[in-house]
Nucleic acid binder design. Structure first.
Lengths: 209, 209
DNA sequence: GAGAGATTTCAATCATTTCTGAAACGGTCG
DNA sequence: CGACCGTTTCAGAAATGATTGAAATCTCTC
């Protein structure tokens, strides 16, 4: 099995095949997230080739239109996972992917939190504020001053509703704080924490219930 | 502002409004993930009302078709975030959401890992195996036995390719291990870890670079 | 085992997202 | 300036994904 001495041409072809496989797998996963398949594929291509490519390279390799390539590149720049590069004596713009996998996913985590969790948290807080003033719960539960035909059953439902809302709120606030810790301050935070948590040190916590 | 004594009817209306807001916010976020908006809304409805609802309740409240409700409920059951319930003397099936937010998101994490990360890891391993035999890297770099017109530049590209592939592989393996730790063994793992990591104890690590 | 109610399935329809191609734009060089 | 080269924008086309509604299936009960 190991005795398949390949010609450079065969090697070249195998390499390209491997790259294509990588790109396909990555694109697949990308579409399971909010990201468009093409965008993920562009990122994968830039990462796996490792060298700066221009728009035409990408169009050709991925068989996509110029517009699509341009849009995807712009989006990736916005996400902060690729950067521009220039070649001397060449007016074209080239693009290259961040070669540090952890940095790359830190950037992605940061963006996704910003786009998905933050708005949700805002909504939840808004709703909570509203129910807090309009449907004031326990806090003034002993202060009398209530409509005389107050319904205890309804009151309880409202209290429970607020409790559930608060649980959700606290959950997302914890997640938010966690991701802040990983993403923003010290660059190595995430990697270190992950390595720590995966190390045998904490293995004792992993006992079946 | 606090002196708006509300009639039970007003309270009831406010409660429903708050629920609707919650459902909308949740559905919004759901669609940013791979989940369909409706599915997220059903989950939100079941969570925030806290009581078991039947298909018709859900259809009516969310204004969706029977088929859609059925499909969404089935999917949520598959994800393991809601469960069936029955009312005495009623042939209808009722559904209720897991009321523990952390359990709920543990289930979601587990499912998403299974559906998205595991297949990716499988693909990456497959690709790596292929390039390993066909484009053997450093390991036999000194064993002579190579095509005589071996191209050193190509060789280097292949090595770099394999390095990048390995980085990505190691990253996802760490993530996989991490999520295993959180998700599968002791139920409280995730919550505890999150609380720990968010506590001031580790705050020292959060210094700007 | 026939009927009634409840649930699931699925082809057709509808909505949303993604992609294309061509035109508009912008900067650079002669 | 004005021709050239490259990039961005955007309206419509294509692809994909979600939803419906009605028929098929299931499952109790009598």
């Amino acid at each position: 099995m190991r005795e398949t001495p390949q010609s450079p041409e065969d090697q070249k072809r195998s390499l390209v095949e491997a790259q294509d496989g990588f790109i396909a797998a990555f694109g697949q996963m990308g579409s399971a997230w909010g990201i468009s398949r093409t965008m993920a594929e562009v990122q994968a291509l830039l990462y796996i080739t490792g060298e700066p490519l221009c728009t035409d390279d990408i169009m050709e390799r991925l068989r996509i239109s110029r517009g699509n390539a341009s849009m995807s590149l712009r989006a990736l720049l916005d996400w902060g996972v690729i950067s521009r590069a220039h070649k001397r004596g060449d007016r074209k713009e080239y693009f290259q992917a961040d070669q540090d996998v952890w940095d790359m996913f830190r950037a992605i985590l940061r963006e996704r939190m910003k786009r998905e969790v933050d708005p949700l948290l805002a909504s939840l807080h808004e709703i909570r504020d509203k129910t807090n003033t309009e449907l004031a719960a326990k806090s003034d539960a002993g202060r009398g001053k209530r409509p005389r035909d107050d319904d205890p059953e309804l009151r309880q439902k409202i209290d429970e509703h607020n409790t559930r809302l608060d649980s959700m709120l606290r959950f997302f606030e914890t997640i938010e704080a966690l991701s802040q810790k990983f993403v923003s301050p010290a660059g190595r935070g995430l990697k270190i924490a992950a390595t720590l948590l995966t190390s045998p040190l904490l293995a004792g916590g992993g006992r079946e219930r």
